[in-house]
């Protein structure tokens, strides 16, 4: 029997791979240089951060009631935006799933639209809708709806594509209509994943809704902006804590629901 040579510890790298690796390393170094991250800057920033935290504590409860009302409005924006987004996501997901869509061109168009919704940040959508419908929570709800569609339609479509093909084939074989196949076989199978995505969408929208006020799209963001601009850091601390508690509560609640349902 001929002796088999021991494989080399390091695999050979082609000149192209080597050149690309060098380019990536150079780009990473350039990224740090351009962003101006430097140890001396960080060391100067730490005492300033300490002073800010010192001014934030103890948090002020002077305007607690209006802050809590704003917080409620923020959560309501998140709920409304998520639900509208989920409603639109379902038909879009069906059209974006290659095995359910009526035509590959429809898949391409819908996936492109959904990708556009996803890649443009919610803050940019908020600015767009503030211009379109004016200042206030309506713009925020629309921004959150679009952001939810970008997220949920994609994951709904993937969940539908991943369902077992057997039950679909059984309904196809008996002459069921496309709608029957989707609603009797595909959606029931994809439901756990879709519920999961919906809960994540709500969590994401709750986090997103907090900052939409910064551009005038309603919610607690405007309260935070005003507090920071007026140097009411103790007031800002109250708002930040309130936001933290809201996001935490929504995450906990959605985890509980997820565990109960799935």
């Amino acid at each position: 029997m001929s002796e088999i040579a021991l494989p080399s510890r390091v695999s050979r790298v082609s000149p192209l791979t080597f050149a690309l690796s060098l380019a990536v390393i150079a780009f990473v170094i350039a990224s740090f240089t351009t962003s101006g991250i430097a140890p001396d800057k960080l060391s100067r920033g730490i005492p300033a951060l300490g002073r800010l935290v010192g001014q934030m504590f103890p948090p002020s409860v002077e305007r607690l009631e209006p802050v809590l009302w704003s917080l409620l409005q923020t959560f309501q924006m998140a709920v409304a935006g998520t639900i509208l987004g989920l409603i639109f996501s379902l038909p879009l997901a069906i059209l974006a799933a290659p095995s359910l869509s009526p035509h590959p061109a429809v898949v391409w168009v819908v996936r492109s639209v959904v990708a556009l919704f996803r890649t443009v940040p919610d803050l940019v959508w908020a600015i767009v809708f503030v211009i379109a419908v004016g200042l206030g929570p309506a713009a925020g709800v629309l921004a959150l709806m679009v952001d939810t569609i970008g997220f949920a339609a994609r994951f709904f479509a993937e969940a539908m594509e991943e369902t077992e093909k057997g039950p679909r084939e059984a309904l196809t074989a008996m002459g069921a209509r496309r709608s029957g196949i989707i609603f009797a076989s595909v959606i029931p199978q994809a439901l756990p994943s879709m519920i999961n995505t919906s809960l994540f969408s709500l969590e994401k929208a709750t986090r997103g809704s907090v900052v939409l006020g910064l551009v005038g799209a309603g919610g607690i963001g405007i309260e935070l902006k005003v507090s920071l601009e007026m140097f009411d850091y103790d007031q800002a601390a109250t708002i930040v804590i309130a936001i933290f508690l809201l996001v935490l509560a929504v995450e906990r609640a959605s985890t509980w629901v997820r565990n109960r349902i799935l």
Partner: peptide, 22 residues
Amino acid sequence: ELRGVRTRIGFVFQKHNLVGRL
């Protein structure tokens, strides 16, 4: 026409092809 024909044919599969969650 195919859908009409299919409605008159029952098909029993080796792997049952039921929707497990239902």
